[in-house]
């Protein structure tokens, strides 16, 4: 007790801060860091979840490089990322930009856009799955057929399935991105726009040279955030292709789904761990790259 009394105010603050931080630190070490490190170790081992773990060196990685399914999945994952992130950001910015300008029904519209974010992904995936079914079940195909066009194979086609799954995934994240964009837009002082109005520059110039540059921190945050979520896409794919997860013919399978199947269908834990390490590295590299590119110089 005497020891504590003799500490300076800032030393006492440090003691208290660490006292309160101890629990989360413990949690992170046991629940996050230990499994992460264990997964990295496991990626150099062979294990079927029950037997002994045996060292196999780089065999899992070697297998990965020569696995055509992995490369297919790798490509799929990047298509989700490369299409999903810009499309969702463009859509959410356009909506937020215009929503910010209206007063009438502003709150209602904002709530409607936010609603999908609050809904369970599984429920949403199944509703969209129903939309995509062929005649006479699916909503979209019924509509297309009633207009006299040939129906479209959404989830049964190797070319259409991925975009068909990506669309609801983008839509589901829109609400969150719109809210963040609106907060960013609100933070720009009105006088910036008034000054530009007096200077007589066009709304396009205002958007390009004032609004977007001032939204840069918001944009960086959303790009990183949405990239991570598209790289980790799983629920939508798993639930919309549940008869044959990731199908047809692996055309929609993302990396996380492959890891899931390798681990819990094939019980090939070492191989799954190697895939996880690859995903982890991709996430790390992509996030760091984006932060670096978009950072203020």
């Amino acid at each position: 007790m005497k020891l504590y009394r003799n500490l300076s105010i800032s030393q006492k603050q440090v003691v208290w801060a660490w006292t309160f931080l101890a629990l989360p630190v413990l949690f992170y070490v046991v629940i996050r860091f230990y499994p992460t490190l264990n997964a990295i170790v496991l990626s150099f081992q062979d294990w079927n979840l029950l037997g002994a773990r045996t060292w196999v060196g780089l065999e899992n990685y070697d297998r990965l490089i020569h696995d055509p399914v992995f490369w297919k999945v790798f490509k799929n994952t990047f298509i989700y990322l490369i299409l999903g992130t810009p499309l969702s950001l463009l859509a959410s910015f356009t909506i937020a930009y215009h929503l910010d300008k209206i007063r009438f029904l502003h709150g209602t519209l904002r709530a409607l856009y936010f609603l999908p974010f609050l809904t369970s992904t599984v429920a949403m995936a199944w509703v969209w799955r129903w939309f995509y079914q062929p005649v006479p079940i699916g909503l979209f195909n019924n509509f297309i057929a009633s207009m006299g066009f040939q129906q479209i194979a959404f989830l049964n086609s190797t070319t259409n399935a991925l975009p068909a799954i990506l669309l609801p995934a983008i839509w589901a994240g829109l609400g969150f991105q719109i809210i963040i964009f609106m907060a960013g837009l609100r933070a720009i002082p009105i006088s910036y726009y008034e000054a530009a109005r007096i200077d007589g520059v066009s709304s396009w110039t205002i958007l390009r040279e004032i609004t977007v540059p001032l939204l840069k921190p918001t944009i960086v945050f959303l790009v990183v955030f949405s990239s991570i979520s598209f790289l980790r896409i799983f629920d939508q794919v798993f639930n919309m292709t549940t008869n044959n997860p990731g199908g047809p013919l692996d055309s929609t399978k993302p990396l996380v789904l492959m890891i899931y199947q390798t681990a819990f269908t094939s019980y090939d834990m070492g191989y799954a761990a190697a895939q996880t390490v690859v995903l982890f590295s991709i996430l790390l590299v992509v996030s760091l790259l984006q932060l670096r590119i978009m950072r203020d110089r």
Partner: peptide, 29 residues
């Protein structure tokens, strides 16, 4: 429109753009 009135205005919070240099800010008009 404000731009057609041949006026210029100085605002209380300056309304100069933080991401542009002084040269570009002055040149904006």
């Amino acid at each position: 429109e404000p731009k057609d009135r041949d006026i210029a205005m100085v605002f209380q919070n300056y309304a100069i753009y933080p991401h542009l240099t002084v040269r570009k800010n002055i040149g904006f008009g």
